[in-house]
């Protein structure tokens, strides 16, 4: 899975620390917990699995979600430094994936990086 992450990016922990940024400003990498975890989906996931990161718009709500290859939404990426930058990069067409670090029916922690 490490092949997705460019070598020059240093590991960062996301959250309150700003994500590490190099190159075109979209080589983001951070660790975070998903919000609004869908229990039935998350319970079936394993550490090391890869999720797709995508923008969703529903009415006036605009969010970044992590979803399985089958299109099931696992949860929302929110409440961390770098979210607005991530949204901007997604709008430009940059792709990201989320590597599951821990998943259960109630919690899903991921590491997000550029595809």
């Amino acid at each position: 899975m490490g092949g997705y992450a460019p070598d020059q990016i240093k590991k960062s922990k996301g959250g309150a620390a700003p994500p590490t940024v190099v190159g075109d400003g979209c080589d983001l990498e951070f660790q975070t917990d998903l919000v609004g975890v869908q229990s039935t989906v998350s319970a079936g996931l394993n550490k090391g699995a890869i999720l797709l990161v995508s923008l969703r718009a529903q009415g006036h709500i605009r969010s970044v979600v992590c979803e399985t290859a089958g299109g099931a939404v696992v949860g929302t990426l929110a409440a961390f430094r770098g979210l607005s930058q991530l949204m901007g990069c997604l709008e430009q067409g940059v792709g990201y994936v989320a590597l599951i670090e821990e998943a259960s029916f109630s919690r899903c922690s991921v590491k997000v990086f550029r595809r």
Binding site: A16, P18, V35, G59, H60, I61, R62, S63, V64, T76, A78, A79, F80, R81, G82, L83, S84, Q85, M87
Partner: peptide, 15 residues
């Protein structure tokens, strides 16, 4: 200030 854009985006994610 340095969190403002991210907090605004977070709020928008939940309406």
């Amino acid at each position: 200030r340095e969190w403002m854009a991210d907090v605004v985006s977070t709020l928008a994610s939940f309406g």
